[in-house]
Design a binder for these strands. Structure first.
Lengths: 340, 340
DNA sequence: TCCGTTTATCTAATCGATTACGTGCTGATA
DNA sequence: TATCAGCACGTAATCGATTAGATAAACGGA
């Protein structure tokens, strides 16, 4: 392989000079010499080893994404896909490659965190809810900067980018109320997610603000996935359609599941009941129905997280930075005024 | 940071001995000493730097995935998602992390390939059709092993994992013929993909084998995406329904597009016309109609590619290895016998 | 003309590991 | 007891870069 030594020999200078040319500093090099070095680099098809540079604290232009999910596969999930895709895109624009840590192998923080921080990445993005509580203390013991995305931002020392699930849920339920609904059911998400609790709280607050009494019989405990929404809608479809005119689901998967589960019960959406989700996940053009949801702009979220991480890597600020992103209503075809 | 030197001091041995303990070789260490070293590593919370080890030709346990597409975003594409997800899963099982190279930044082989090979990855997987022709000559000049996945396997020196698009298309068209169809239309894929041409060829051969004359009026040139299928079906829906009883699409996106485009024309599938795809892309449970398609088992493909790459990395065999994977028919709800 | 500055470059230490080579010790053999 | 093999481990070179410190030449002011 061609290394810096060969380039130095070929251009008749020391390796130090080649390095100064390569990095455009920290010491100046005469233009004439510089040109000779560049020529030698071209002739020998030289490209510096990222590894050797990292030995001196230089960056490797790699950001690690720890994308773990306790149950489902991350790559079959449009939410994770959108975020990871956004990270890769945002990274590529800034010349950063992205390393993905995904799989059961990384679930144990004691063995995983040292590997995340073994020098291959300049910084880390965490997509690990609800595992962050176990992961973050380990990460804080090391020097690799990291940003937590959606969840686990409760720790005040951790830089994070997050959405306000509470506000989003509240806005959506307020919207349903404005459309004339007063009997609004709710399918919850997994209760070990902080966001699921926040969304439930936003739902209750919006009702309270409108002077509507909270009815626990309209709340169906569930998980954050399609099957959960489908199963609950299939079991309770008729009851829901009779007792409520709208159904607010804890996320878009649940909402789509509910949609199909209700359809299987012969309930029409939005004719018989309105359905609203939250997250704004893009299921692609192949998908049929457009869901009314709160869009959290996952690409924008990813972009902001990457930029924040780059800031941490480059400037290592002393105090943690927390960003909260707003959700925006996206009207689809699943909400209408109540029939009655 | 704690490094090997501190561990050596703490356990009263030299760094060499610590290294022998760490690597369990190449020289033996007395059990007693080994225990002392392990204890010191635990006490100091020591974990070796992957970077420094790489300086001595050791592996970093990272495989790079070059996932480029000339037009669409890779992460909004279920095909790429399935393959990349499969690679990440297969890698995690073998203790490998995956680095993703994606974005316009890497389209130019002259600047990109040196970066792919800058030491951060032990090997590369190429998902770059149809760009491989430009990328592969550059890669062959370097020492980083690589495997090409689907396309660009034409170069006899390159190890690859591929499906036989020709056989798959032929099998699918033969199946349609067996179901009673004789007038079979075809939506092609982008003609700069070798696979698209192979699929078209398989279509023609299957017709020829059954003694059915090839009718160029039944062939609609297009691209490998949903919109292409949709647009062609929307424009020509009635004509297609009248002139053919089945439609074989160059991939699953096109097929889904055709499905919706025909529906918009009031054509029923499979009542009025049967539709078949090829690839076996999984659109997730949220998706409605089940397409009849040729499944190429993308997870299995990814798994085999990772294993092949690991073989190249570990054993550096002298001759390239080429694998061809079969496609399997997956019956869905979009093919029936012709109505007549 | 002499000395201090500036400029351009070289020498060598350094990063954190791996490993070839050298050394001291033990025990078996002649 | 001298010799030699083998074991256990230390010393130091090495990987490919970066960079502080040393050095030599050019330049400018008193």
């Amino acid at each position: 392989m061609t290394n810096i030594k060969k380039v130095a020999e070929a251009s008749g200078v020391s390796t130090a000079t080649v390095s100064y040319v390569l990095n455009n500093g920290p010491r100046p090099v005469k233009r004439e010499t510089r040109d000779r070095v560049f020529a030698a680099m071209r002739d020998l098809n030289y490209h510096p080893s990222a590894i050797a540079r990292r030995m001196h604290g230089k960056r490797v232009n790699t950001i690690g994404v720890v994308a773990l999910h306790p149950i489902r596969s991350v790559f079959k999930d449009p939410y994770f896909n959108a975020v990871i895709g956004g990270i890769v895109d945002a990274g590529a624009k800034l010349g950063q490659s992205v390393m993905i840590f995904n799989g059961d192998r990384w679930l144990d923080p004691d063995t995983a965190v040292p590997i995340f921080c073994d020098g291959r990445c300049d910084g880390l993005l965490l997509l690990v809810a609800p595992l962050g509580d176990r992961m973050i203390p380990e990460l804080k013991m090391r020097t690799t900067p990291f940003v937590s995305i959606n969840e686990a931002a409760s720790d005040p020392d951790v830089s994070s980018v997050d959405i306000s699930s509470y506000d989003g849920a509240k806005m959506m339920v307020r919207y349903l109320i404005e459309r004339g609904h007063r009997r609004i059911a709710h399918f919850t998400g997994d209760d070990y997610y902080q966001s699921a609790n926040d969304r439930f709280r936003g739902y209750r607050e919006a009702l309270a603000d409108a002077g509507i009494e909270f009815d626990p019989r309209l709340v169906y405990q569930g998980r954050y996935d399609y099957e959960s929404g489908y199963d609950r809608a299939l079991e309770n479809g008729k009851a829901i359609a009779q007792s409520a005119t709208a159904l607010f689901c804890a996320n878009d998967y649940v909402a789509y599941g509910a949609l199909r589960g209700l359809a299987a019960n012969g309930v029409c959406v939005p004719g018989d009941i309105s359905i609203a989700g939250i997250d704004g996940v893009d299921f692609g053009p192949e998908h049929g129905t457009k869901l009314t949801t709160m869009d959290q702009d996952l690409e924008g979220l990813a972009d902001e997280a990457v930029q924040l991480l780059m800031h941490l890597i480059e400037d290592s600020p002393l105090i943690p930075i927390k960003k909260i992103r707003p959700l925006r209503l996206r009207e689809g075809d699943t909400v209408a005024a109540p029939a009655r």
